[in-house]
């Protein structure tokens, strides 16, 4: 299991990286942390002619707060996010998701830019980015574009990135003071990609949920906002009936796939279960969870 041969370039600036990307086009692959790319290379699922290593681009790494916006450089690693007090405070949903992503050694290399560009439908971060209304900042030789996270993911391993573009950063609004969050995933083993996961946030108080975002992952070809269900839940105080209606609405919001781990119908079922658990947490009304706790 050895990768096919390729050339290697390590640009010293974003401009140089984009220039290389422009020159080599489809024959090139960017490599960030390599935690998704290198397995694919070793398995010969991909055989690029040249790798453009973003590892030297120090200015793409780091977390800054500008006013009400948190900016995360594309080369910021999962481990950086997990260990960041800024993220814990300003983007608690991101912080809640991080421990579920892979394992320590992988988090020490994997980056947010690589993760989002990879657009694995089972990955946590594409959902989280949609839940928090993040914007993906992308650049090519001609300049920058800002793409709302909800428009960024277009299919299995597919994004709105155009040829010659790369992700340079992610920007997200600082969480509101009264923000309530929920993150949970059903995965077979710790660190595995989820069978079904939900990143959710809302504001409001008690059973009244405002600005509710339900971002599902691993239930379809991309991370998806369950807008109909959210609308049902946002239409008035949440009770068991409203919750049931929202659970029913998930059938329209989501188009879960069959795969090794579970069938689409199992996924839909689990999406409903996790919704109840989310709403119980967000509303503080444990009875809505529909299950016992020890």
């Amino acid at each position: 299991m050895k990768a096919s041969a390729f050339d290697y370039a390590r640009p010293a600036s974003v401009r140089e990286a984009l220039e290389l990307l422009g020159r080599h086009g489809d024959a090139a692959k960017l490599i960030a942390g390599g935690q998704s790319l290198v397995p694919a290379l070793n398995l010969r699922l991909l055989a690029p002619e040249i790798l453009i290593d973003l590892g030297g681009l120090a200015d793409l790494r780091g977390i800054t707060v500008e006013g009400a916006t948190v900016r995360i450089g594309a080369m910021t690693r999962h481990a950086d996010l997990l260990g960041s007090p800024v993220i814990a405070e300003k983007l608690p949903l991101v912080a809640a998701a991080m421990p579920h992503i892979a394992h320590p050694a992988i988090r020490n290399r994997g980056t947010i830019g690589g993760n989002l560009a990879h657009a694995d439908p089972a990955s946590e971060l594409p959902a989280v980015m949609q839940a928090i209304d993040a914007v993906i900042v992308v650049r090519d030789a001609s300049g920058e574009r800002r793409i709302a996270a909800r428009d960024f993911f277009t299919g299995i391993y597919e994004t709105a990135l155009r040829d010659g573009e790369m992700i340079v950063a992610v920007e997200a609004p600082v969480a509101a003071k009264d923000e309530r969050i929920f993150f949970h995933e059903f995965s077979r083993r710790s660190g595995d990609y989820a069978i079904v996961g939900l990143a959710a946030r809302a504001t409001g108080s008690g059973n009244a949920l405002a600005d509710l975002r339900l971002a599902y992952f691993s239930v379809g070809d991309k991370a998806t906002l369950a807008e109909r269900a959210a609308a049902v839940l946002g239409a008035g105080p949440v009770d068991a009936t409203r919750l049931a209606a929202a659970q029913a609405a998930l059938a329209e919001d989501l188009s879960p796939q069959d795969d090794q781990q579970a069938s689409g119908s199992t996924r839909l079922h689990l999406s409903r279960v996790v919704l109840a658990r989310a709403i119980a947490v967000l509303t503080g009304d444990a009875s809505l969870a529909g299950r016992a706790t020890a």
């Binding site: 710790s190 595995d192 090794q260």
Partner: peptide, 27 residues
């Protein structure tokens, strides 16, 4: 967890450690 999943054409569909689940420490 563990299961070598073949399809009806005799293709092993989960021949990797990402897809064939072995027991790990946490569980």
């Amino acid at each position: 967890y563990e299961h070598c999943r073949y399809d009806e054409r005799g293709q092993l569909t989960n021949a990797s450690m990402a897809d064939y689940l072995v027991p790990m420490a946490a569980e």
